[in-house]
Amino acid sequence: MKKVWEVYPLRVAFASIPAALIVSALAITLLPPSVSFWVSGAVSAFSAFLFVAYAWGRHAGGLLVAPAIALLFCMNIFPLLWSFGLSFFHYRANRLAPPRFAGLHYYEKVLTDPVVWDRLQVTAQLVVLTVSLQMIVGFLLAMLFAKQFPLRRVLLILVLTPMMLSFVAVGAFFRYYYEPTFGLLSQAVRVFTGEPYVLLQSTAGAIAGIVFADAWMWSPFVMLLVLAGLVSVPKYLYEAASIDRISHWRRFWNITFPYVRSLLMLALLFRTIEAFKLFDVVFLLTEGGPGTSTETIAVYVYRVSFQYFKTSESAALAYILLFTVIVLTNLYLYFANQRNRT
C-alpha cells in the first residue's frame, strides 16, 4: 500500500503550511521567545523541505529560482508585512514591552498631525521644483546630444557621471561647494561682490541649493531616456517635413515630441517617485534647516523611527507614503494611457 505522501506529495506539502502556522502560533504563545523562535524555524523548514522534496526531479527550474524567491521573501516581503502589522500596534523598537493592539490609532494620529502636513508641503515643493528642473535640463541635454558633433561620446560620458555617484558623495561634494569660507561658489561670487556668499542661510537659498544638487545628479537620467526616444525618430519624417517647409516648432511638436512623449512620462514617473523619497542630499546639505524649512517627509520618517523610536507611528507614516506614491503612479499611468489613445 502506498503512503499518502507518495500519492499526493503536493497536497501534503500544502497541508503542511497551515500545520506549520498553527504550531508556530502555539509555540509563540506558550513557549519563551528563545525556544519558540527555533520551533517556528524548524516547522517552517520542514514545510519548505516537503516542497523541495516534491519538486525534486519534477520541477528543476522552479527549484533553482526558489532560493532567490525565499531570499526575497525573508529580506523584503516579510519585513514589509511585519512592519505593516506593527503599524496597528503600540510598539517601540527600543523597549522590551510587547506590542499592544492599537487599531487605526497611529493612522489617525499621523493624518491629523500638523507636523506631517508641513513636511509633506516641503516635500511637494521640492518635488515640483527639482523634477521640473530635471525634465527641462534633461530634455535640453538630450536635444543637444541627439546631434553629432566632435567629442560627443566623451562629453556624454562626462554628463552621465553624476548619476553614477553615490548620494552621500554628492551631498558631501555640494556641502563643500556651497560652503562660504572654502567653497567654490562663494569664492566665485566673491570675485565680483567682495563678500562671501552664503547660499544656505535662507529658506529659499536652502531649497535652491538642494534642488540644484538633486537636478545636477538626476538630469542625466532624464536625458538618457529622452535620448533613446530622439534617436528612434525615423529620418524620413524630417526629410518629408523639410520638403513641405514645415516650421521648426511644428516639426518638433508633430514629429519629435510624439516619439519621446511616453519616455518623458516614464522619466517623470521615476523622478517623481525618487524625489518624493528625497533624503540623502537634504540630510547632508542642510539637515532639514534652516529650522525645519527643508525637512522632507523622508527625513521626518527617519527621525520618528530611528531617533524617537516611535516604531508604530513611523510604520503608519511610511505606509501612508507608500500609498500616496502608488496613487500618484497610477494617476500618471492613467493619464499616459489616455494620451496614447487620443
Binding site: 556641502r175 556651497y178 569660507t181 552664503v198 544656505l200 542661510q201 534647516g289 534652516p290
Partner: peptide, 18 residues
C-alpha cells in the same frame, strides 16, 4: 563668526576645521 554660521551648519567639526 565665519559666515558658515549663518547656514546653521557650524557644528563642532566645522569649527575645528576652521
Amino acid at each position: 563668526m565665519p559666515p558658515v554660521v549663518k547656514t546653521g551648519t557650524m557644528d563642532i567639526f566645522k569649527q575645528d576645521e576652521l
